[in-house]
Design a protein around this nucleic acid. Structure first.
Lengths: 187, 187
DNA sequence: AGCTTTTAGCTAACATCATTAGCCAACTTG
DNA sequence: CAAGTTGGCTAATGATGTTAGCTAAAAGCT
């Protein structure tokens, strides 16, 4: 029996990819094992179980989302930064719906939980966007939550097929970006 | 063996309540059967299975959400209507996280699917809010999607414990309502 | 190299859960 | 009150997550 050369990172990466393909609910240990060329129980040498796998996929997803949004924002400010961040976030969720779904409903176990640090990085990327606007200190937290709500809400509704009519969805998203930009400038 | 006097509606209502208590993922047929005082296989006399149960819970949730939002809006217009609708929607999601989660990711099978009609009613309630603003015909769909995105995004992020810092969440929500009202008035 | 230790894979077994089959008593309807 | 329908039951099956215990491959040491 030759070894497969797995490690936790490889298992988690394969799990995230599989979740994107078949949906988070369709991600089973058996399917993942088959994907990485191993029998199911062998996965438990690398991850603690389904819940642990989910947390690790979530941490990976948040980290990648932070990279995507942070990278997109670089070199832009104001409306351009807002648009770049929002587009990057939505693109990430639409391309990686399974791993993004894994991030919902988890509580970081502590300040050094990878989940928490990745989340902080993502938050930091959105915070950088707000620096391009003149926002009172007391409004920053509210504005940040608004940004997250908009981006998360729009992206997950679209990913869940929540928009029914035929009006172009990309157009709606650009409209939403413009709406938010005007609002942030007028605070 | 006395009969339990169940019917599909009772099973679905109990399932929705149970989903709110233990989370949608924790809703098992066995748990639901115990809750309604029956053995597991008996549930299949009333619902087709877990997927069918989920769809029916979703339809119930959308219908109840439509009632809540529609009722809250009555008699108000403009900013008051917006605030009433947003608060009612968020309150519904926070009080009924399980059944709301059941609504995500489903495609109505046709125009007379209860899921579709309930969804239309909920959409209608939000559309009514927009009538209190002077919005160009071409912007209505975009504005509606914005409303849904921000209500859905904020409520689900909060329900999923997605807001980390200590800034008061209710305050952020009111801030978001005010932000949206100003924006809609300035279109 | 050869020996030991660790470890990543395996098979076998078990628990939980959704679902189906088939039976029987309780309602309903004439 | 007889006949049919139906809502409950037990038993059984298949899928899935998980643990136990074995073994061979890799890694480390002399």
């Amino acid at each position: 029996m030759p070894r497969a050369g797995l490690d936790p990172a490889a298992v988690v990466a394969a799990g995230a990819a599989l979740a994107d393909e078949v949906g988070l609910a369709g991600l089973t240990m058996g399917l993942l094992a088959e994907r990485v060329g191993v029998r199911t129980p062998s996965l438990y040498k690398h991850v603690g179980g389904q819940e642990d796998l989910n947390r690790r996929i979530a941490a990976l997803a948040l980290s990648q989302a932070a990279d995507a949004v942070g990278g997109a924002v670089q070199g832009y400010a104001g409306r351009d930064a807002l648009a770049a961040a929002a587009r990057a976030f939505r693109a990430f969720v639409l391309e990686h719906p399974g791993r993004y779904a894994a991030t919902l409903g988890l509580e970081p176990s502590g300040p050094d939980d990878p989940l928490a640090t990745a989340g902080q990085r993502l938050l930091g990327a959105f915070t950088a966007v707000l620096r391009g606007y003149e926002i009172a200190e007391s409004d920053v937290d509210h504005a940040l939550r608004m940004l997250r709500s908009f981006c998360h809400g729009f992206a997950t509704l679209q990913a869940a097929n929540g928009f029914q009519w035929s009006t172009d969805i990309d157009e709606s998203f650009e409209w939403l970006i413009a709406f938010t930009d005007r609002g942030l400038r007028a605070i």
